[in-house]
Amino acid sequence: MATLRAATDSLLDRAARLGSLGDDAVRAPSALPGWTRGHVLAHLARNADALVNVLSGRPMYASAEARDADIAAGAPRPLAEQLDDVRASAARLAQTAGAIPADGWSARCELRGGVTDVMARIPFRRLVEVELHHVDLDAGYTLDQLPADFVNREIDFLTARFAGNEQVPPLSLSAPDGTTWTTGAPPSDGDRVLVTGAPYALMGWLAGRTTGTGVRAEGGAVLPTLPPL
């Protein structure tokens, strides 16, 4: 939670600098196709409230349609209103998390689409939202500026998520320091496509933030297109 607070403050500080460009800055495109910066900020606020629901034992969102409608409705707001919303919703999440007893974090909870996890993973899931959407704001924070500990933990999470997925060929990922990960479908012949790159580049590719910038498939193999998360 302390790491999450620091990441949220960093995002708010950078987003506030957009104010020098006027409210048109929040209506400008983000790095996410079809979303403005306002969409990104509105999503972050509503995601915090959705995680309050999760930690409180309620459905994460009333429905997929309601989630999308809330983001669309919040996107055009002035920057100052957006920042106040992100800040207040983050405070509600922190307050809810602070009220959970130590032995309560081991309980299971339900997220979107029937996905379940232990409560203790919720702060990291929120950290992923904050860090990646900070990059998505396209306001000067880039993948290579993400904290190394976060990047490695997110690669662990994403490779576990793609493990056994028949839409993903058998992959072995390798960073310059020798750290390796495996993911994708089980190899029928024991071989995996070796993909190399700096950890932030590998994570950006796995997270769908790039199509492979800074990574390469070795041995003449073609870098595969990953399915959406």
Rank of each mutant, 00 (worst) to 15 (best):
D117A: 15
V215D: 02
A31T: 10
T8A: 13
R27F: 02
L111R: 13
V151W: 02
L32V: 14
T183R: 04
A163S: 15
E81H: 09
T179I: 10
G219P: 08
T142M: 10
A217R: 03
R87S: 15
L137S: 05
V115N: 14
L51N: 12
G197W: 01
A73G: 09
L41K: 01
G204C: 07
L93N: 02
A148E: 15
V135K: 03
G164M: 07
R46N: 11
R77H: 10
S30G: 04
G22S: 08
A102K: 11
G104I: 03
N152Y: 09
Y141V: 08
A91N: 07
P228W: 01
V193K: 01
L111V: 13
V151Y: 00
T210R: 00
C109N: 05
M60T: 13
R153Q: 14
T180Y: 07
A139V: 06
S20N: 10
G220M: 07
A48G: 11
L55C: 15
M119Q: 12
W181T: 01
M60Y: 02
E154A: 15
A97C: 05
A88P: 04
A62L: 12
A185V: 02
T8H: 06
D117P: 00
L79P: 05
S174W: 00
S56H: 04
A2G: 08
L173M: 06
L223I: 06
R37V: 00
T213H: 13
D149L: 13
M203D: 05
T3Y: 03
T225E: 12
P169M: 07
L18D: 04
A175S: 15
D117S: 14
F162N: 08
S89L: 02
V193L: 11
A91E: 14
A42V: 01
L173H: 03
R108P: 00
A45R: 13
D85W: 09
G220A: 10
L41N: 03
G34H: 05
G212A: 08
G214D: 06
T116N: 08
W205S: 04
L18V: 03
T3G: 13
A80H: 08
V40S: 06
A50N: 06
L55Q: 06
G178V: 08
A48W: 01
G219K: 07
Y61A: 06
E218A: 12
D191M: 11
F150C: 09
F157C: 11
G98S: 09
R87K: 14
L127K: 02
A28G: 12
V130S: 03
P170R: 07
G197Y: 03
I71M: 06
I71Q: 00
F124K: 06
V52L: 11
D103A: 14
T179L: 11
T159L: 04
W35E: 04
A148V: 14
Y61Q: 08
P186R: 09
L146C: 04
D68E: 14
L93P: 01
L83S: 07
L143K: 05
W105K: 14
D24V: 15
N47Q: 09
V40P: 03
